[in-house]
Amino acid sequence: MWKIYPDEKFNGYEEYQGGSIHIRKGAKLGYLEQIYHIEGSTEVEEVLWQAFKKAIEIKKELQNLEKTFATLDQKHLEQAMAKYGQYVEAYERLDGYQLETKVNQVCEGLDISTLRKMTFGSLSGGERTG
């Protein structure tokens, strides 16, 4: 069993009151704020995608590298391909190829599929916190 105490990752979010968290081997730990500070014009779907920000950034890096492949000489192409391989590994570790499925599962699980294109500001308080 693991005993998890607040660290710098959670500072500023919630005051630690006590207790412990037990996490099974291989589980990932995250934090979800109950009160969102999001612009009212932001669509609900954009809010959902924010949970996958790192994977999205890596995907953009992959796409940028792909655009350069045709213009590189052999030496630089090999370097770019090595970097590309590192990005692919990171993307796979984050289940990047499953992002669309994950967003769909969240929408279905929370029964919010009909709210996806609505702006965050148009939601009721209960809809915002799920």
Rank of each mutant, 00 (worst) to 15 (best):
residue 1 M to L: 00
residue 3 K to D: 06
residue 5 Y to G: 01
residue 5 Y to E: 00
residue 7 D to M: 09
residue 9 K to M: 06
residue 13 Y to F: 09
residue 14 E to L: 14
residue 15 E to I: 08
residue 16 Y to D: 00
residue 17 Q to H: 01
residue 20 S to T: 13
residue 20 S to K: 14
residue 20 S to I: 11
residue 21 I to K: 15
residue 21 I to G: 01
residue 23 I to S: 03
residue 23 I to A: 09
residue 24 R to P: 13
residue 29 L to H: 09
residue 31 Y to K: 08
residue 31 Y to F: 15
residue 33 E to G: 04
residue 33 E to W: 06
residue 33 E to M: 02
residue 36 Y to S: 04
residue 37 H to R: 06
residue 38 I to W: 07
residue 38 I to D: 07
residue 39 E to C: 00
residue 41 S to P: 08
residue 45 E to F: 10
residue 45 E to N: 13
residue 47 V to H: 00
residue 48 L to T: 00
residue 49 W to E: 05
residue 50 Q to M: 10
residue 52 F to K: 08
residue 53 K to P: 02
residue 56 I to G: 05
residue 56 I to S: 03
residue 57 E to A: 07
residue 60 K to H: 11
residue 60 K to T: 11
residue 62 L to T: 01
residue 63 Q to P: 06
residue 65 L to Q: 13
residue 67 K to G: 04
residue 70 A to V: 11
residue 72 L to G: 05
residue 73 D to A: 09
residue 75 K to H: 13
residue 77 L to H: 06
residue 78 E to C: 06
residue 78 E to S: 14
residue 80 A to N: 08
residue 83 K to Q: 10
residue 86 Q to R: 08
residue 87 Y to P: 05
residue 88 V to K: 09
residue 89 E to I: 10
residue 89 E to L: 11
residue 90 A to E: 13
residue 90 A to G: 00
residue 94 L to R: 03
residue 94 L to I: 02
residue 94 L to E: 03
residue 96 G to C: 02
residue 97 Y to W: 00
residue 97 Y to C: 08
residue 97 Y to V: 06
residue 99 L to N: 03
residue 105 Q to W: 10
residue 108 E to M: 00
residue 109 G to Y: 05
residue 110 L to W: 08
residue 112 I to E: 06
residue 113 S to W: 01
residue 116 R to D: 03
residue 117 K to E: 09
residue 119 T to Q: 15
residue 124 S to K: 07
